[in-house]
Structures are given as C-alpha cells and as structure tokens.
Write a protein that binds this DNA or RNA. Structure first.
Lengths: 138, 138
DNA sequence: AACTTAAATAGGAATTATTCTTATTTGAAA
DNA sequence: TTTCAAATAAGAATAATTCCTATTTAAGTT
C-alpha cells in the first residue's frame, strides 16, 4: 500500500489514480501551481479533467493533506503537508525552499502580548539565495 | 495637499479621484478584498470601472504603496503599506489584526543557517482572538 | 485662467480561472 | 463478483482578471 494511498484512506478519501497522481506530482515538484500541475499530469494522464484537479486540491487542502502556499503576486501553490517549516523565497531565481526555524519563543511572546491563542503560523522570508547573492557580486 | 495625493505623486502617479478614493477606502477598512472595495467605492463613485480598480491595485502594489495580504483559501486583501508588522488572523471571527513583533534575531539566525539574505518577511499567525477564546469557554 | 498633452479612465469585449451539472466509471466493502 | 456511494470526465456556466480604445483629466506651461 503506497504512502499516498494510506494518507488518502486515513482521510476517508478513495485512493483514486487521479488523487495519487496529484499527490505524487506535488511531492515531486515541492511547490507547484494549478496550471503547471495540470500540464504535468496531463502528459501521463490525458483524460484528467481540470475540474477533478480543482475539486481534489480543494478537498485535500480542507483535510490538511495539502497546504496552500500563497505569495503576493503569484498563483497559489500547493505542497504536501509535512513537518512545520518556513519558506524562503528567492527574488532572483524564484525558488521556494522549506526550512525549519524554531519560533516557539516568538509565538509565546505574541500570545502574551496580544491575548491571542496561536494555533498555526505561516512565515515567509523573501530575499536572495546563495546562488543569486553570488551572481550579484560578479 | 492630502496625504494620499502626496504618496501618489512621490511615486509618479497622478493623484486621480479614483486612486485617492481607493487609498481612502483601503485605509479605512484596514484589509479589504477587490470585491468589497469595489462595492464600497461604487456607492459614492458610480462610474468607477472594475478595470480601473484592478489596474490601480496592481500598480500601487508594484510601487509598494499597497501590500497584498494573501491567506490560504481567501481572496487577496489589500492594505496600506505602513510600518512592518505581522498579521494575527482569528479563525473564529475572521478578523485580521496588525501587530508588531521583533524578529530581527530570527531573521539573522535564518540568514546564517541558510546562507540566505532576507530582504522582507511575511508572518501570519492564525488562531483565536480574545473575544473568540472567551466564547469557546462559555 | 485657458492651453496642452501624456496619463488615466469608463465601458465593454476578450480572456482566463473556477465552479457546477450530469451521465458514466470505479474503488473498496461485503 | 456484486454492489453502490463516491469520484470522474466533459463541458456548460459563472466568476475573476486583463485588454482595447475612445474619451476625459491632472497638472505643468503659458
């Protein structure tokens, strides 16, 4: 039983070929938007309907199998929900990378100062990755 | 000379009635999406075209007069660019609040660990505001 | 205060994105 | 294998966004 099949069934979703293919493609891409995902999948799955994509992306996001990554001025991207992490987005090459950063202390601080219970966090740092820093120096 | 007029002219944009009205409405609302903004503005500005809205929101975001606030599963919202701040989003009432949180140390940590130059940060904490915490207790 | 003109707008068409509908297919439980 | 609720494909319908162009306007100049 594939990992994806298990994930789906644990969430009361039938493990259809379409869903598994979507999860595989997202996992492989890391972060990918609806269009690119659809084009990729269509190559090996010519009957896949766009409606099926939208429906499943939405359902699987609702069930927290997927995570929507929203960045200003960009299309929504999807990633597999894994360990909590932040996103580093390079202004140069556009790459999105997952990184861990311990922010428990900041969350606590924020909760105390604002009388707010933090249940989830979403952190994006934009800037320049190593490669793009180096290119600027040349 | 109104503040908005000045902001626009500093960015080489003509201070049109439309733009000033858009800025006023966003400032008043705090965070607002295209639809709500358009409906609000139309009341007092019946000829305003939707295309004008989109064009200006996009231009003013490009010029960093506005900031796009993107949250998963929600329409893009716009806010006036002011001091850096994080967003607290309540799962109960949906309200978005601006708060300051010093994360310089975390940014430095992240830069060193990942050889990444951070130029901007975007932090959203979702959870429960005071009101909605209290309601859950009752 | 009128003149000039590049920039901006209104209005609507065109395009793109997303959701909805329904007949057919399929995963998986019995 | 049979059964059937759930899911899909295909395409229509709707919603969101961009594009086009004739007209208007902000603001600099006389």
């Amino acid at each position: 039983m594939s990992n994806y099949q298990e994930i789906l069934q644990n969430n009361n979703l039938k493990a259809t070929h379409q869903r598994i293919a979507i999860l595989e493609a997202i996992d492989h891409a890391g972060h990918i938007d609806v269009d690119k995902l659809f084009k990729n999948l269509r190559k090996h799955f010519p009957t896949l309907a766009l409606g099926t994509m939208y429906r499943n992306l939405s359902e699987m996001s609702d069930k927290h199998i997927l995570l929507e990554v929203t960045l200003p001025g960009q299309k929504v991207k999807y990633e597999l929900k894994k360990e909590p992490h932040i996103h580093l987005v390079c202004n140069g090459c556009g790459k999105i990378e997952d990184r861990t950063l311990d922010i428990e202390d900041k969350i606590k601080e924020c909760e105390e100062e604002n009388d707010f219970t933090v249940l989830d966090s979403n952190i994006v740092f934009t800037g320049l990755c190593q490669k793009c820093q180096d290119q600027k120096k040349v």
